[in-house]
Design a protein around this nucleic acid. Sequence first.
DNA 1: CTGAAAGCGCTTACAG
DNA 2: CTGAAAGCGCTTACAG
Lengths: 369, 369
Amino acid sequence: MLTWKRFRTQECDRNGDDRGTHQVETSTVTLDDVARVSGVSRAAASRALNGREGVRDDVRERVRHVADSLGYRPNRAARNLASGRTSVIGLIMPSDELRVDPYGASLVQAVADAADRHDEGLMLHLAKTEPRRAVGDMMRDGLIDGVIVSAIALGSRWVDELLDANMPTILIGGHTERFDVHTVEVENATSTGTLVEHLHQEGCRRIAHIRGRHGRVDADQREAGYRAALDRCGLRFDPDLVVDGDFSRHTARRITPDLLEHRPDAIVAANDETAIGALKAIEAAGLRVPDDIALVGFDGTAAIDVVDPTLTTARQPFDRMGELAVSSLIRLIAGDDVPLQQVVPPAIELAASSQRTGGADTPPHVKTE
Amino acid sequence: MLTWKRFRTQECDRNGDDRGTHQVETSTVTLDDVARVSGVSRAAASRALNGREGVRDDVRERVRHVADSLGYRPNRAARNLASGRTSVIGLIMPSDELRVDPYGASLVQAVADAADRHDEGLMLHLAKTEPRRAVGDMMRDGLIDGVIVSAIALGSRWVDELLDANMPTILIGGHTERFDVHTVEVENATSTGTLVEHLHQEGCRRIAHIRGRHGRVDADQREAGYRAALDRCGLRFDPDLVVDGDFSRHTARRITPDLLEHRPDAIVAANDETAIGALKAIEAAGLRVPDDIALVGFDGTAAIDVVDPTLTTARQPFDRMGELAVSSLIRLIAGDDVPLQQVVPPAIELAASSQRTGGADTPPHVKTE
DNA sequence: CTGAAAGCGCTTACAG
DNA sequence: CTGAAAGCGCTTACAG
């Protein structure tokens, strides 16, 4: 079993006077080698390996076998240069989003895993201010074939600029009102409604809502779901029970005390971070969750696993969203048809924070899809 | 002002019967264009643009100007193929590390920002099981020039396999005892000692330590620093006051109650997550921080900002580490000399969790570098 | 089904 | 200092 290796001369000598001697001796197995050993032309070998038609089965077999035993790996740069495809996709996300909310980290992980499954490289770009330039550059540089954008913290201007860059784009967790953008996102309204109905079943009658950031579509959708569900439950909408958060724990912690003045018996938080902030405020006020105030979140990030009591939430199907985003992008790049809006349902996970002793007829730990 | 754009034919027609028509009309500005317009050869243009010597200054000027006004961007694939360099570096990290501990997210952000500053692309690879294959592949595929590895959750076998892949590698947050590996890491021992001394000054006499994961070098170093500082403070080492955690919040929450049996008046947690877990346990036991038990962490991740009381910690200089890792890797790739071990000090940040009323002569919010 | 040939856009010795 | 030329490793019409 032969194993060639690309060998890099690392002239890191201790004298340090050898700089610049960087030489890459590319003694790699090349398509030529595979073709020669297989006794076919380079063209045929290429077709065989890439699953193109127009190769006899036994030839394809042979070439593949030879490639395997030689440890052949196609040079991506060469393939890219010749074909115009890179097999690398970009992931763009506002720079600090990753750090601030576990949501960002979960998303990156899901997309990275999905890219890996599809054998696509993933270029991560944490954007600062001017997205279009960076993305346009990546594209024109021939580094990536398309891009997945986590627009979480973005205004629509960002999105517009991205789309102008004129490259296959999927918005993940899409927060734009544009209808001409390919998005993969979680269902917001109905799911939030389900949580409200659950609280209603638990006996809650003054159900409050801490909204997400003003101007964000997902925040609006979740509020809309909340309102619609109140209606269905026959509860009156009370403006005093809805306050503006911004998806952050910190803000929730700060604004919840005021909300408590209006004596809600439940709080629907726009996301988990908000719920956790609210929880702290509730505890600080000497109230108990869920008996004094029931609490639900949204996202299902890792953060909720360590909260006490455990948090009822709508868990985003990160893996599925990542998979959908990557596979859709690949199809987009190939020129295939892809539905514009792909909405996936979260999993409603009931936990201690919303289940009252003697409240419901719901069993203690139901997972509803 | 001309602006060429690579234009991609997106034949996403509604009938969907046009698949496979993916065509990239590369009507990009090419080096040839720049050369022609500048009135020089392609070779000269290349040298001018890449800052190579052997070009008259006025020519260089002219070429650069032309390139600018044409909106020229070198095709990375072509450059790569010709030069063997990709200007892309890899970042490898265990798959779930990113999600579990905010440390991972902070690190990714720091490295991504640094790569951006150096105009290097960043390929993210969240590794599952068999690191070498993936990394070796990336390398041989010609996708990256070198790799930064966050070895946080890794055993030395992982590291060994990586180094066998024979590519420029920097271990960030290096947790190996091998001495032949380039690492960039935070100073662990002395910094932990400083925290212990601070607690001693606050009047604590029974200072406990919740270790990081068994077998990890950084955990060992922090414990060593703890022990050495006890000595300096004239405190006796008490084995009952040292317990094995694993850097996770969850485990700390679980094991702290037992530790409390031994009545410590302070706890030095191996990292912030551990400290937060301990904090919860302390609260659950009806004790107060810092007056009953003072508490310090390590890392300075975003998580501590929302803890109440705010957590004293040794804040890792993530940005600096990212910068150091990226710039060192670039030098490594270029064949330049790079110090093997680069250790940077954390910033000791005193906060409420360790500052007792009437305890110290330390001012309330000192930042010590 | 198969191969010879051109070409993707750049870099880099090598001569001048 | 400058240019002509070869070559990086692949893919893809185009003929057979």
